[in-house]
Amino acid sequence: MDRVIFRYFPGDSLIHRFDPRIKLPGCALFCYAALQPGPRNLAITAGALLAAFLFARIPLKTLLIDFLRFVPLLTALFLAVFFSSDDGGPLVPAALAAGRFALLILAGNLLIQTTALSRISAAVRWFLTPLPRRLAGRLGTMIGLSVGLIPLFFQELEESRDALKARGLRARKQPLRWAVKLLTPLLARVFLRTEEMAEAMEGRCYSDERSSLPLKAQGIDWLFGLAVILLVLAICQT
């Protein structure tokens, strides 16, 4: 099945249609809520995020499989907190830290999965309206493209990894050699792809001052924003 994590997943759900000018700060506020201490807060934010994924009709099984690639990172975080914690039993804080980090990854992923790049760029440009138009346009495109390049990076990573595997070099057997051999072609390929993309953009008359996708906030968008604010307030007051 096609990978879904950190990739736009076209759809027409409510989550997809929310105005990105409310969705972006909403996501930031949600992340703030997810970082608040305590297992109860973690459970509430995890529940809210799961509901959002279900609303957005993201295939959870595929997402879960894709998410497994973050397990080494989460394990490293867990172990780091586990061995550095000195208050009470270190198991709970370590698990909470890993859980919070997982939530941050998933919240960012949900934003990317349900918001087209052009809408993110348009929202960023809107937030940067006080800046000169050309600078705002450039920053909007840069942020949008950075988000868009994440799946490109993963794709190149997978191809480079498979190429190494096909030639008998596996991470488990020779991790250091594997990492060195992976990094060089990976970076070369990513730079080549980005250069080709830049050339193609120029070929399509790229300009910093572009027409922006029209955005329109409706009642439901404000309700969404209000719901996130209430969630954050509820969590912060406990």
């Binding site: 990739r7 736009y8 076209p10 087209a116 790049l117 052009s118 493209l145 868009g148 792809r193 080709e196 993309m197 050339e199 193609a200 953009m201 070929g203 399509r204 008359c205 790229y206 300009s207 001052e209 572009r210 027409s211 922006s212 996708l213």
Partner: peptide, 25 residues
């Protein structure tokens, strides 16, 4: 260009097609 994969800047077909005309303001 020769490699179509490197030319796509939009996440959907529709979004990609908008890119050029948007640049023309």
């Amino acid at each position: 260009f020769q490699n179509p994969d490197s030319q796509f800047v939009g996440q959907t077909v529709m979004e990609d097609l908008r890119f050029g005309p948007e640049n023309l303001r």
